[in-house]
Amino acid sequence: MTTPDNWRKSSYSGGGDGNNCVEIATHFTHIAIRDSKTPAGATLTFPTGAFSSFIEVVKTHPAGTERAGI
């Protein structure tokens, strides 16, 4: 699998320089997510079809409220 080179920041980056968010990159076989504050760090990668399910879980179980079971 190749590392995507088309990283873009979330539209919910907030004020300032927008570094307190995630970045996403798409590839025809997978979608990758990374922390914008540490772009050289770990990358979470999903098969293209599984990304929508991941987003729904994140929306349903925001961090700090309850375990999402994933």
Rank of each mutant, 00 (worst) to 15 (best):
T2S: 13
T2A: 14
T2Y: 00
T2V: 12
T2E: 13
T2K: 13
T3P: 02
T3F: 03
T3H: 00
T3I: 10
P4V: 06
P4L: 00
P4Q: 11
P4K: 02
D5Y: 04
D5T: 05
N6E: 04
W7C: 13
K9I: 05
K9H: 12
S10F: 09
S10G: 12
Y12L: 14
S13L: 11
S13N: 00
G14K: 09
G14T: 05
G15C: 01
G15K: 12
G16Q: 14
D17I: 03
D17W: 03
G18F: 08
G18Q: 07
N20T: 08
N20P: 08
N20V: 02
C21Y: 09
C21L: 02
C21R: 01
V22C: 12
E23P: 09
E23F: 11
I24Q: 14
A25Q: 13
A25R: 14
T26W: 03
T26H: 14
F28E: 14
F28G: 10
T29Y: 08
H30N: 08
A32E: 06
A32G: 11
I33F: 07
D35T: 14
S36E: 13
S36P: 09
K37Q: 07
K37V: 06
T38S: 12
T38C: 00
T38D: 13
P39Q: 08
P39C: 04
P39R: 09
G41D: 05
G41P: 00
A42V: 06
A42T: 03
T43A: 03
T43R: 14
L44G: 00
L44M: 06
T45E: 05
T45H: 02
T45F: 02
F46S: 06
P47H: 12
P47I: 00
P47D: 10
T48L: 08
A50R: 12
A50E: 10
A50N: 05
F51R: 06
F51P: 09
F51M: 00
F51S: 05
F51L: 04
S52E: 15
S52F: 01
S52K: 15
S53G: 15
S53M: 11
S53L: 14
I55D: 03
I55V: 15
I55K: 15
E56A: 15
E56C: 13
E56M: 13
V58K: 09
V58F: 02
K59Y: 06
T60R: 11
H61G: 01
H61M: 09
P62C: 01
P62L: 02
P62R: 11
A63Q: 10
G64R: 08
G64V: 08
T65D: 07
E66T: 15
E66I: 10
E66G: 09
E66N: 12
R67K: 12
R67F: 13
R67P: 13
A68G: 08
G69T: 06
I70Y: 10
I70D: 05
I70L: 15
I70K: 07
I70Q: 03
